[in-house]
Design a protein around this nucleic acid. Structure first.
Lengths: 260, 260
DNA sequence: GTTTTCTTCTTGTTTAAACAAGTTTGTAAT
DNA sequence: ATTACAAACTTGTTTAAACAAGAAGAAAAC
């Protein structure tokens, strides 16, 4: 039993073609601190070195340290205590967990967790956005869209039914073959388009006949549904996706902060 | 039909006793921009004024503008385009939606959305954390905990079964009466303890006999479950809560950003 | 007309400095 | 011993400045 983990916020996922170059200083420091926290060199409930200490350690300005730390705060790794220091609140998740990340693709997630997977394309057509589709997805009326239905298998178990819609003129040349491997890889490497922001909504919906046809639901009568709108680097929403997850293999993680 | 919305990340929720004073400059600017985006003074797909323009508008430094804007990015309100500007990608959610926010309490959410609500306490005891509870919640073994079960009603419909556990020595003097109104109000106003970070995990679980006893599930056989660990301003985890939601009134919102 | 280059706009990164405000600790006064 | 205060930490906010890098349009070269 290894549920699918879906953490929130920014992911460190990188397109396959790119080298893993963090370029910026604050990102290097962020990754170093993150790793040290995960390795428990900075253990749970301990304080990080003070900002001024880290300034000398990393040979940079205090602002750069603060920027790196603020990312750790966002991710729920640490919590800052005014006048006291920055406390580690990260705790490792259990081994059997399988993590699906931010805007990470199914393929990337499966690979990262060393799991066998494959994808079956059950529908691949082109449709035109009408009033009903527009209201549901957020695409303008009259746009041509790729409409794709895929079953995602992990260790030969059908876990996810993906319904994708892509703006046709943003993703030209998409084929059924590409949909079988990785659409994101095609978009980022072939089309050289970068994906930036994704707005997601999680609900629980009653299983439809299609769900029951393709997924083994084991008399669950509902599914975890993630609907997402994805924007490219030009700020254009080019994708709407509905991922319908088998409930027993689904988990979504999140960190919230309260303003005082 | 108005599902419960649960957005991610920081909330602007404030304890009742406090005045709504944003104190800091960047927060004022952030709130002003946010309001203008929600009012569509800065409409969907338009660019915000450039940073230098806003520097003169708000009479502050560029850094302060950038800090305010970065919060809008986190919330999925805008997306920055290097060399071009900052594009608005906020779209209003539909009227019928009911939003439960970040670490916002049930009472706060209901009040903010002008809905009638009440809470029924079905269990209020003190337990001691053993190996099993510790593994499930993250509390150390041997700690004394308040164990509370509550049913949350919205418009007289039983929507949520809340199971709370509080570190007894962190929340002294908790009573059944307080649990009936608002525990968070007690914690923040009476105990003067501030709540800062909350790590949450969303899953879908099969309905138990207790769920069926208290919630009207209308032949749904599973629920949306949010498990959360909450930390106070000292970085101590003082609360573990499991909120079991009726599926048809549940919605969780989120914005993710991909690093390139 | 087309391409190239340059200038000027935009956002992105980093540094340095000053001050505010919460926490701790040692010291002096009681 | 206890209290009160001051000094020395901590993080939080804000400003100013410089440079990098992407985007766009105007001007120059072809």
């Amino acid at each position: 039993m290894f549920p699918l983990f879906i953490p929130t916020g920014s992911t460190s996922a990188q397109p396959k073609g790119m080298k893993n170059m963090p370029k910026s200083k604050f990102e290097l420091i962020y990754k170093d601190l993150k790793r040290k926290i995960e390795d428990q060199q900075y253990p749970y409930q301990e304080l990080l070195p003070s900002e001024n200490t880290m300034v000398t350690i990393y040979n940079c300005s205090r602002n750069t340290i603060r920027r790196a730390v603020s990312q750790l705060i966002e991710q729920g790794y640490v919590q800052s205590l005014h006048g006291k220091g920055v406390r580690v609140i990260y705790q490792p998740v259990d081994q059997t967990s399988f993590t699906i990340g931010g805007i990470e693709s199914f393929k990337e997630s499966a690979t990262r967790n060393h799991r066998k997977y494959h994808t079956e394309v059950v529908q691949f057509t082109i449709i035109t956005s009408d009033q009903r589709i527009s209201g549901k997805t957020g695409f303008p009326v009259g746009e041509e869209l790729y409409y794709i239905q895929r079953i995602r298998y992990l260790e030969d178990k059908a876990l996810i039914l993906d319904i994708n819609m892509f703006l046709k003129n943003c993703v030209p040349g998409l084929t059924r073959e590409i949909a079988e491997t990785s659409i994101y890889e095609y978009i980022e490497n072939e089309l050289n388009m970068s994906i930036v922001t994704s707005k997601r909504r999680m609900t629980v919906e009653r299983a439809t006949e299609i769900d029951e046809k393709y997924l083994e639901l084991n008399d669950y009568n509902c599914l975890a549904v993630i609907s997402s709108q994805t924007y490219n680097a030009d700020g254009i929403m080019f994708e709407y996706t509905q991922s319908r997850h088998r409930p027993d293999y689904f988990c979504f993680q999140d960190t919230a902060t309260r303003k005082h």
